[in-house]
Write a protein that binds this DNA or RNA. Structure first.
Lengths: 193, 193
DNA sequence: GTCTATAATCGGATAGAC
DNA sequence: GTCTATCCGATTATAGAC
């Protein structure tokens, strides 16, 4: 791994653990083992590093999630698999956690990177729900709304888990959502009669 | 309003807007109009101020929410009213937003204040769901799970709204959840037959 | 109680040598 | 490309006068 990659990786790790405002250039140097001069040679500053790191984190997430949504199983199963995907629950969502960072929220360019990621996943979920409806797995619903609900529940599940430093509340919230989806599913089957 | 109250109010406002780590004692002095010496006379430091402010914010929220849950309407309606309650969506949840603040998450005492608030509201929702089930408004479900789902959806709705700086995603996510609850409700009515 | 002065450390860079 | 030196403001207090 070259110098630039080391810097991006270290920045990504620290952004996930501590957010943007609380991550100092010095901390990035320490984490990556790269010196001051070298860091400022490759990147213009903290924001430049953050952009590279967020883009890299997002790309990794997209690839992982893409795998789940291209599996050969029913649309609804793909959504369930996404909800039950393995996660580092107490660390929170690497993207979602940055939304409350004051220095991110006040910077259009950085905030847009987060929005892009959320929109990408919500579109993915919406399209999968459309498929599910066509196959009569579930009853007709507004896919924009339900994909927002699914995304929001995931994001909020991280939040309440962190407040307790326990993973159980996360699982409770997800299983509650799965139960609601299950009811909607039975209802869809009924409609076929 | 006396000096101490002014300091607590200013701190509460800044915690909501910027979080804990990004709120400096100097900013609190400016916001409150109280001087340095005076501030350190009334409070031992930043953390002491934050505790007072979070407790005060929590107390206010509890009172407002208590009103909704003591209204004379069906249990399920009380939950719907809570979900549709007026909120400062883009500012985020004054409690939930602090969960990702590194200086809060690493401090047991501060984090516990957030947990207390979440637990209080989730208990409130659980109890109301129990009532709703007894009255056959909805089918039997695990109230711990569903109350976590409801709380998580609210928290996550703030997150996605902030990523877009728009309130619509918040409303979409809430209405998606309400639709799922509606389906569960129809199912409950069926059970009565 | 409130004020101003002072301090030690950190944050985020820039400058110039090698 | 990488290193060390330097800069200036902010952070979070403490000290002592009034």
């Amino acid at each position: 791994m070259d110098t630039k990659d080391k810097l991006i990786e270290a920045t990504g790790k620290l952004l996930w653990e501590r957010g943007y405002a609380a991550t100092s250039p010095k901390a990035i140097q320490k984490e990556s083992g790269i010196g001051q001069g070298s860091m400022y040679h490759h990147f213009s500053g903290k924001k430049d590093l953050a952009i590279a790191a967020i883009e890299r984190n997002s790309e990794m997430m997209r690839k992982e999630i893409e795998l789940i949504f291209t599996e050969k199983t029913s649309p609804l199963n793909r959504i369930k698999n996404y909800l039950l995907r393995e996660r580092e629950i107490l660390k929170g969502c690497p993207v979602g956690r940055l939304v409350y960072d004051p220095d991110i929220y006040s910077d259009e360019e950085l905030l847009e990177l987060l929005d892009n990621m959320f929109q990408w996943i919500m579109d993915k979920i919406s399209m999968t729900l459309e498929e599910s409806m066509k196959q009569n797995e579930i009853r007709n619903i507004k896919t924009t709304e339900l994909s927002s609900t699914i995304t929001a529940t995931l994001q909020g599940s991280y939040v309440i888990a962190r407040s307790k430093k326990k993973i159980e509340p996360f699982k409770d919230a997800i299983h509650g959502l799965l139960s609601l989806i299950k009811i909607m599913e039975e209802k869809g089957i009924q409609n076929e009669r």
